[in-house]
Write a protein that binds this DNA or RNA. Structure first.
Lengths: 150, 150
DNA sequence: GAATCTAGTTCTATTTTAGAACCAGAATCA
DNA sequence: TGATTCTGGTTCTAAAATAGAACTAGATTC
């Protein structure tokens, strides 16, 4: 059967995953953050099948994450650029990156690092803060339902 | 063909997605943060097929995200609890939640809110900071490759 | 002791994904 | 200018992932 959709889910996490949770989507977005724009660049950089890339790019454009614009090199081709909505996925990518760095490499394995453009120092770790600036651990938070209950 | 694996990718984002990027995985983790522990609870809460849930839970245990422990109610059953590695996915979930809240609801639609347990105020937005405390936008960061180049 | 609940397993049907082959229009080369 | 190559796809097949129903053994409750 068709994969179950979360598009109309109550939970924002589920809706996000419905929009950008299929295989390849976030890697395409990651590449877009790294300046990749053209179909062939994505294809070669990711090693993805062309047919798959075609449908993923179409889906991401439909989802409002990417825009299809005239190529910036003046050619008759087009290129894919992040929309505002797409750029706002930056934190998702950074969170995935930090978790991966922390848990998915052996001691002796090197990995790339996200640094700030000016100082070239690694960015600091993401943290959840309360409205009044306290650091919050996962068990110091709660979900309040839409209706205000719980 | 078998879906392409990113387990040995250089990029931490790709490795993360390989580990927790398949359909349902992060929703199971989200439920675990909400205190869901038992097989039947996950199954009913998510509306997932039992067979799918079985393989996802097995994968997450294999990945070190969940642990299978004796049920806390004293029965002979068992329950799934987040490991340290799993708890560290909190930021990923929060980032997905905030993006979804911002971009995937109509004006008139309500959604649940993440609040701090004490004050019951919504948590503040995630932000990327430089080592010296400046807020960084996506285009104020760079990726430095593992070998130190670029 | 019987009925029900829990946590699965197994099966089939459909959808997704990977990969190769093909193709038309744009750009480059000679 | 014409031939060749590059770009950005489309189409096809085969294998894997997912959904859902049916079934089951052991634990718990009635």
């Amino acid at each position: 059967m068709k994969r179950k959709s979360f598009r109309e889910a109550e939970c924002p996490v589920a809706r996000s995953l419905d929009a950008i949770g299929d295989w390849w989507s976030l890697l395409i977005v990651r590449d877009a953050f790294d300046g990749i724009k053209r179909f062939s660049e994505f294809q070669q950089n990711l090693g993805i099948a062309k047919g798959m890339l075609t449908t993923r790019l179409r889906d991401l454009v439909e989802a409002g994450v990417l825009n299809l614009a005239p190529a910036s090199d003046g050619s008759a081709y087009r290129e894919y650029v992040l929309t505002d909505k797409g750029r706002n996925l930056f934190l998702v990518i950074v969170a995935l990156r930090q978790w991966g760095e922390d848990h998915l490499y052996r001691e002796d394995e090197k990995h790339s690092v996200l640094v700030d453009a000016d100082e070239r120092n690694p960015v600091s770790r993401l943290t959840v803060y309360s409205a009044d600036g306290r650091q919050l651990a996962w068990d110091e938070t709660r979900i309040v339902a839409a209706n205000g209950a719980q």
